[in-house]
Design a binder for these strands. Structure first.
Lengths: 339, 339
DNA sequence: TTACTTATTCTCTCTTAGAGTATAAATATG
DNA sequence: CATATTTATACTCTAAGAGAGAATAAGTAA
């Protein structure tokens, strides 16, 4: 449609060629680990990247374009797909791009059931904590954060005015919490952004960005090409948040599963441990699952009932989800040996 | 960055010229009504539209481009701004555009304090329920929904297979609820999408879209140019949802306000009535406000304390927000006469 | 003074969430 | 085969939170 006022001329004048990149974060959970599909480094491409390709006029819809590209590049066909965010800031483009057409990346989150094990393509599945080691609190506070802390405080105290120093301390407290307390697992993107600004992650140094305070810290995880690690952070944040009010985890589960498997999937995504009896109560109370009648052996103990997702739950509750909070005391889910 | 596999050639081949439109939903609350800023119809532009303009190479960031356009078109400078969604499906463009370059719209939500009353610009503030009359349940169930119901059932029963009819009935139940129960105020976009698909709103008939089952229904609200009503629906949905876990309402309040004003702002956004004592308890318990010491007269009754937003609340709670649910019984907030 | 309006404070009940304990039914081990 | 170990499942106890309504305070309008 037309834009009003005298925008017409401005449009002609300033409108620059733009390329739209459709980029997918494809997530699965296997063996209680969250995985993401990437294309490994190769000749002419130093870093790993997410599956992605440009929007063309053959793509009727953005999502359809994404599906096409992903299938071409990885062989994966996608089920659940959701748009995340559109990234397009200039100062943040990989300078390798030169000043060719401006590129916007539209990021998508996709959830799939199972990593296709024998994919002959260049695509490989990786534990997503490879890119965000500080996000996995399932075995307690990750040690890598110890390495960040001095960098963070140095940055805070380097503020020009007292006010700025206060704001910076506040920001650190909100995003990273206070020495283990107040950790909010949803703030994945905030943490990445802060790490990027301060220079903790490798991308800060590669990009044409202002702040380069700290040298790229140890334990800052594997970098991805372009904006891709930011897009991944956005995806994890969205998924962690959404789990709480929509039954999205079930997109990642096989048709039948045990309650422990479900719990471990949620724990894998959220990066925290949950209290087992309360988790089960929550799931059953909300009517999110129903019996299949079958049981599994091979659990190593008493056989577990196999359940399946109950679609009707969507109709019954306004916000069917797993509103979980981390167990205060570190809580074994019953699988990983004696506490 | 580069795209891997043999995307290079495909990119050259298919890559079409693209225009990026930055579109703003600018929201304020005055006199307990939610308002949105639009540019009125004019010569060469039959419908109202949202402030919007193309991204140019002068805009370093998308958000900065948006702010520039909005200020040029409306004189409003924006405070809180948040990206919503990127729309770019082909089948849904206003056919008036012809087949000129494909346009993607990136929608934004902006919150401002006060409508600038005497704006000489073409921009005007309108109650947002003008575009979504069925979304305002503050005075009970809106009558316009009565007009939709037969159209909805006719659509459901027109499904080809029994399965499709069932799916359609389910979808209606989830989005519109069952005759007044199960109304979920967050599902603004779902409802608009359904209305669009069935043909309840005017845009369905204007666009080059498939379904045109029903004639554009009475009480279906004022149409906007292009995608803009969809973008507005997205904004309302986002704002209604976000209110529950982030203190965004305060972006819309004056520096000092009474608890009733705050409640009415939340009610205006959510389109539902709240239980007054419980609302106050929630606000005070969460530590979201603090005393200013002053009181207002002119409330028509006992003077009310004036409070202000307490920023520290952000640090103390993981999800500081107003997790409100509609009062079961219609509940007077004490202002609108005797129930 | 009396009615009415809005503000503010309580109370009571019911649901939900956090944390821990007890029992059941398999596997592993001697 | 008895026993320890492991996982599954069911309960209990407590405390916090949410829904609903009543009671009291302090103004304005008649």
């Amino acid at each position: 449609m037309k834009t009003r006022t005298d925008a017409g001329s401005a449009r002609q004048a300033g409108s620059a060629p733009v390329t739209i990149d459709l980029t997918a974060v494809i997530v699965a959970v296997t063996d209680a680990q969250p995985r993401v599909l990437t294309l490994g480094p190769s000749v002419g491409q130093l870093l790993e990247c997410l599956p992605s390709g440009p929007l063309t006029r053959r793509h009727r819809t953005l999502e359809q374009g994404l599906r096409t590209w992903v299938e071409a590049q990885t062989g994966q066909s996608l089920g659940y797909v959701e748009q995340l965010y559109t990234f397009g800031d200039l100062g943040r483009q990989d300078p390798a791009t030169g000043d060719s057409p401006r590129t916007l990346s539209i990021g998508y989150l996709a959830l799939v059931r199972e990593p296709r094990s024998g994919s002959a393509d260049a695509a490989t599945w990786h534990d997503w904590y490879r890119y965000f080691p500080w996000e996995d609190w399932r075995k307690g506070r990750p040690e890598v954060i110890d390495g960040f802390e001095p960098i963070l405080s140095r940055w805070a105290e380097a503020g020009e005015t007292a006010g700025e120093r206060h704001t910076r301390r506040e920001r650190i407290a909100v995003t990273f919490g206070h020495h283990g307390s107040n950790w909010n697992e949803d703030r994945v993107l905030d943490r990445y952004e802060l790490a990027y600004e301060i220079g903790i992650v490798a991308e800060s140094h590669r990009d044409d960005s202002g702040a380069r305070l700290a040298p790229h810290a140890a334990g800052s995880g594997v970098a991805l090409a372009g904006d891709h690690r930011r897009i991944l952070a956005t995806a994890i944040a969205r998924l962690r948040g959404k789990t709480k009010y929509r039954p999205v985890v079930f997109e990642l589960m096989p048709p039948a599963f045990t309650l422990l498997q479900l719990q471990q999937a949620v724990e894998a995504l959220a990066g925290i441990r949950l209290h087992k009896p309360n988790f089960r109560r929550l799931v059953e109370q909300q009517g999110l699952v129903e019996e299949t009648g079958a049981v599994t052996l091979g659990t190593g103990g008493r056989p577990a009932r196999l359940v399946r997702f109950r679609r009707e739950a969507l109709l019954e509750r306004p916000a069917p989800g797993l509103r979980v909070r981390a167990a205060r005391k570190r809580q074994t889910t019953g699988v990983r040996g004696k506490a």
